[in-house]
């Protein structure tokens, strides 16, 4: 799987390259600035890009802007954005084109290598990977949303994991229940939130995120 990496700190860049190579990713280019990243993304059209939000020359949200711009030029280009902090504002911007194939994770999550690699693969496959912190914030905001308050605690757990972008199988594994049970919970959640239940996993995730973002 071909990866473009955008990270300016040498220590982290080398670490990420080593990590990705250990899991058989092919790092086609590792760049250290916003403009270089945009060029690399458009030139290589990688299977997935792993991008740090903050990049030179401005050391602001250069990486995010480059990723969003690249997705405008190459629709559906899978991008996983890493950051030292999460902002709902940025999550919203990444999700705004409703195309999926985006991830937005805290840099800390890299330390859980398996989960991190799983997130990259998910994004590459067109899915989403939202940081649990983003989802927590979204759910906190939805505290006064009538339909959300009718969810059972278990349904809320399923909703959080689903919003993070995890598959039914992964959710089942996390909660120690069968996939069938997860399917039932999801059907209940969609019923309560009055969302159309789609067969496609990614569509379901995007629908849930869009719902949470609205409340």
């Amino acid at each position: 799987m071909r990866v473009v990496l955008g990270e300016d700190l040498v220590l982290l860049r080398d670490g990420l390259i080593r990590l990705l190579q250990a899991y058989d990713f092919d790092v086609v280019e590792a760049v250290d600035s916003g403009p270089a990243l945009l060029k690399a993304l458009v030139d290589h059209r990688p299977d997935v890009a792993v991008v740090d939000v903050r990049l030179p020359p401005t050391f602001t949200d250069e990486g995010l802007r480059a990723a969003i711009e690249a997705r405008k030029r190459v629709p559906g280009l899978p991008v996983l954005v890493l950051s030292q902090y999460v902002e709902q504002l940025y999550a919203r911007e990444l999700l705004s084109d409703r195309g999926g194939a985006v991830g937005y994770l805290l840099k800390d999550r890299v330390s859980d290598v398996k989960q991190f690699v799983d997130a990259i693969r998910r994004v590459a496959a067109g899915g989403t990977a939202m940081d649990p912190e983003v989802i927590t914030q979204l759910l906190a905001r939805g505290a006064r949303d009538q339909p959300l308050t009718t969810l059972t605690p278990r349904e809320r757990e399923v909703l959080s994991l689903m919003a993070e972008g995890r598959s039914n199988g992964a959710i089942a594994g996390r909660l120690f229940v069968t996939e069938k049970a997860v399917g039932k919970h999801i059907a209940n959640i969609f019923g309560k939130l009055d969302l159309p239940l789609s067969e496609d996993d990614n569509r379901r995730v995007l629908a849930v995120l869009a719902y949470l973002d609205r409340v």
């Binding site: 903050r54 602001t60 949200d61 030292q84 902090y85 902002e87 504002l89 919203r92 906190a140």
Partner: peptide, 30 residues
């Protein structure tokens, strides 16, 4: 460290100025 940095100078303020930072603040508000 993240919480500490937020208290010193929120990154989103550096990134986006008052506009983005206040909107981010509003998004995170209950």
């Amino acid at each position: 460290l993240r919480n500490l940095v937020r208290g010193i100078h929120p990154p989103v303020l550096a990134d986006r100025g008052l506009d983005g930072a206040l909107r981010a603040l509003a998004l995170a508000h209950p």
